[in-house]
Simulated scan of single mutants.
Amino acid sequence: MLPRPVAARAGATAVAVVLGTVGAVGVTTASDAEAAARPKDPRRSQGLFVDRTMLAYQQGGVYRSRLGRVPQSFWVIPEEYAADTVRDDVHEYADDAAAARRTPVLTVYGIPGRDCGEYSSGNPLTTAAEYRAWIRQVAAGLRSQRALVVLEPDAVPLFGGPAGACPTKPPGWHRMLRFASRTLSRAGAWVYLDAGHSSWTPYTRRAAHLKASGIKFARGISTNVSNFRPTRAEKRYAAGLLRGLRRLGVQHLHYVVDTSRNGARPGADGYDVINPTWARVGKRPRLVFRGAFDGTLWVKHPGESDGTEHGGPAAGQWCDLLADRLLGRPESGSC
């Protein structure tokens, strides 16, 4: 269901997406002057990083111009980036972004039991101790790099679902997420703990699960990762979760929405989420910092398969046919 990177990073360069900034005009006080004198966080003003090693960029042509030149998240998974190498790999990516004066965006996807044995199973990390050691190395690579991190897509809604619905749910999963949220945040990352999407019901206890999973250490939540829900529905969903968290004593949180593939109204079957034929690419990412809404990201990589349905290859592999569908172009007929 979720993408996996298939090529090692090397020699990335950057293209910018202009981001919005917010401010206020008023009477200047001593505290205002002190705040103005402090260094401003570059994530509020600079563009998001475009990595030329991404598969869409490597395809060239229309795939590069319409997909590959758009900032997308770098997926950090233990199959590709093991504990003994992930620190350097992550640091290289973040350094490339810093050299381009752009903000690095990463998705950390390595919790044991992820995806409940479905398309993104096969995780080499099987214990909490292995996961914590891996997360420490990811955090070491991100220290002081001012990154955005989407943390463990689907984990909270999958593991927090009905008993028996996820045969691979690991014991102590709340504590693992709590450790990751705290450790990555202490390294200077803005962490968005993933909260599923608006059509993933029931979610009456999701706010409680987010609290138990260390949301208080994070900047906020992410929604719609690798899914297709309209942005308007995701904003309502996120706002409801944040209200629920405020009632639980967790305040001042923010959220981001994945818009990589939500450019069309979902089909009648809301569970058709593996390369659905009706999906289209969504609006380009843009950070706006409007109240609790930090903005939109492309977390899932358009053109990379969710799994072997609707003509797709294995999860994470590039497919011209899938990219053509998302762009509304005539299908190439193959991957």
Rank of each mutant, 00 (worst) to 15 (best):
A7C: 13
A10P: 00
T13H: 08
V15H: 10
V17E: 14
V18T: 14
T21I: 09
V25W: 11
A33K: 12
A33R: 15
A36H: 13
A36S: 13
R38D: 05
K40S: 14
L48C: 05
D51C: 08
R52F: 08
T53V: 02
Y57Q: 12
Y57G: 07
Q59M: 07
S65D: 15
G68T: 04
R69A: 05
P71W: 00
W75T: 09
I77R: 10
P78T: 00
E79V: 08
E80K: 15
A82N: 09
T85S: 12
T85K: 15
V90T: 01
D95K: 14
D95F: 14
A97W: 08
T103E: 04
T103L: 03
L106A: 11
L106S: 03
T107G: 15
I111V: 15
E118N: 15
A128H: 01
E130T: 09
Y131C: 09
R136H: 09
A139V: 01
R143F: 10
L148F: 14
P153H: 11
D154M: 01
D154S: 08
P157C: 06
P157D: 01
G161I: 10
G164R: 02
P171D: 12
R178W: 11
A180C: 00
S181A: 12
R182I: 07
G188S: 08
A189P: 11
V191N: 15
G196Y: 03
S199I: 09
W200H: 05
T201P: 00
T201K: 13
P202H: 01
T204M: 03
T204N: 04
R205A: 02
R206Y: 10
R206S: 01
A208M: 00
I215M: 03
F217G: 02
A218T: 13
I221S: 06
S222Y: 04
F228W: 07
E234S: 06
A239N: 11
A239G: 03
G240L: 11
G240N: 15
L241N: 08
L241K: 14
L241I: 06
L242A: 05
R243L: 14
G244A: 09
L248K: 06
L248N: 00
Q251M: 06
Q251T: 15
H254K: 04
H254S: 02
Y255P: 07
V256K: 03
S260I: 02
P276T: 13
A279E: 02
L287R: 11
L297N: 03
V299F: 10
V299C: 14
E304W: 01
S305K: 04
D306N: 15
H310Q: 08
A314R: 01
A315F: 07
A315K: 04
A315N: 03
W318K: 01
C319H: 10
D320C: 06
L322A: 07
G328T: 07
G328D: 09
G328H: 03
R329A: 06
G333P: 13
